[in-house]
Nucleic acid binder design. Structure first.
Length: 435
DNA sequence: TCTGGGGTCCTAGGACCC
DNA sequence: TCTGGGGTCCTAGGACCC
């Protein structure tokens, strides 16, 4: 009879995270339905066609930076026939869902971290197959099924997995997959990675780190933890620990409930009248209330803000916001709409050229949980739940089917989206035809 | 003329209480 | 009325992420 060895700590599979990240995601989505643009430089612009938020490899090679204002790179665009697209979030969200569903079918646990990237828990998988091989399987399947290229980084902590992914993107020789399980490889990559590429280290922090002589990821990993904690915060200390291989950030298996909902837009061109801003704010609060109900929450606080263009120094500047606390949380659009319009009027000042406004909902409660006081005389809107359900259902199939009168006032604030691609995957009339 | 939008977390400082 | 320590709660602002 063979003897069964007891499981020791040494045999416990080491923790392993993977980070799967889509390459140039928005640009790749646009190209999916335009194979004729395959090797052309292409960029996707932010709302109002303001700045570049995604670039194809060819556009990056031209030196177009992330966030570059479109009007500043007009010459480059003309010279190299750069294809510019307005952002088409309906398309990107749909493609993202397909990518995530594909990944979910292949890994034990997936945490969708953003529209174009996800963490997977590969603890245990590592002992069964070669991690690099598995990374390639993930990559190949997503590319075959959805048509989107990804890079895969694998390591014992999330921060190192991010770093591995950075390596997979940066160095083509890796074939888009980097296994950073071994400490020697971790240190090798960290030694040649600037500290500002580390997840959690932004512009401000890297500047301060540089002045302390910390320029590479490795130097941050080797820095004295107490000093880091004292000079910065627990956040950066955690980052340093993660770089050392100590896992501080775990998988988030359930999406945490939202703390706040913001809907705001820059206007297509400056507006002055209260009626214009109220029409914009009406649209924003209707959307915010819809999101709120989707989250299954009620809000007790609502904020409205508006401002002029801070970039235009020759214009008179004004910026203000006002927050109102409701006696009882609500998820009824009618109630929030009336409130938002009143708040809007309260902070509006004539004589300014406004370029942005927005609304925010916060202080959330699950419906029915809020304890009303004995003396509250709050009269809930009649048939609120049923009416909102009808509203949401009608608008689910086609946005704007049912709307409030105040949403359709002035339209001079509307966004600029002059180069919008069709909704290839989410609107029947836009589905591409195959001949 | 033209510079995105939507989030989270942490910290410092003030108010207030015992 | 003053003093000091210690705790909690709230808010504004700063930093980060994609």
């Amino acid at each position: 009879m063979g003897c069964v060895k007891p499981i020791t700590a040494a045999q416990k599979p080491a923790r392993c995270f993977a980070l799967i990240d889509c390459n140039n995601f928005y640009a790749s989505c646009e190209r999916l339905f335009r194979p004729d643009l395959k090797f052309k430089p292409l960029i996707v612009a932010s709302n109002n066609d303001g700045c570049a938020v995604a670039r194809s490899a060819e556009a990056k090679a031209l030196g177009i930076k992330m966030g570059a204002p479109i009007f500043k790179i007009q010459d480059l665009i003309r010279q190299h026939d750069v294809q510019v697209f307005s952002s088409n979030y309906a398309l990107y969200a749909d493609i993202s869902n397909r990518v995530m569903t594909t990944l979910e079918s292949m890994v034990p646990q997936l945490e969708v971290y953003s529209i174009d990237e996800a963490f997977a828990d590969l603890t245990g998988v590592a002992s069964a197959v070669s991690l690099t091989d598995f990374g390639h399987e993930l990559r190949d399947k997503v590319e075959r099924w959805v048509g989107i290229r990804t890079c895969v980084g694998m390591a014992p902590t999330k921060t190192l997995a991010k770093l591995a992914n950075y390596g997979a993107k940066k160095y083509p020789k890796t074939g888009g997959v980097v296994d950073l399980t071994s400490q020697a490889r971790q240190r090798k990559l960290m030694a040649i990675t600037p500290v500002d590429e580390v997840w959690g280290v932004g512009r401000k922090l890297s500047k301060r780190l540089n002045t302390m002589g910390i320029e590479t990821a490795l130097q941050l990993a080797d820095a004295d933890l107490k000093t880091i904690r004292k000079a910065f915060s627990v956040v950066l200390e955690r980052t340093a620990r993660e770089l050392r291989g100590e896992s501080c950030l775990s998988m988030q298996d359930v999406t945490p409930t939202k703390q706040q909902i913001v809907v705001s837009r820059s206007f297509g061109s400056p507006v002055e009248g209260l009626d214009s801003i109220q029409s914009a704010v009406a649209t924003f609060i209707v959307r915010a209330a819809e999101k709120l109900r989707y989250e299954g929450q009620s809000a007790k606080q609502a904020t409205v803000f508006m401002r002029t263009n801070p970039f235009n120094t020759s214009d008179a500047q004004y910026s203000n916001s006002v927050t109102y606390e409701l006696p009882v949380p609500t998820q009824d659009t009618r109630e929030l709409l009336t409130l938002a319009q009143a708040l809007c009027a309260r902070i509006y000042r004539p004589g300014f050229r406004y370029t942005k406004a927005g609304v925010m909902l916060s202080d959330f409660y699950q419906p029915g949980v809020f304890q009303t006081s004995l003396f509250d005389v709050h009269e809930p809107k009649p048939k609120s739940k049923a009416l909102m359900a009808v509203l949401d259902n009608l608008n689910k199939t086609k946005t704007g089917t049912l709307y409030f009168a105040s949403q359709h006032g002035k339209t001079d604030w509307h966004m600029k989206r002059e180069r919008l691609s069709p909704a290839y995957t989410t609107r029947w009339s836009d589905i591409p035809k195959a001949r």
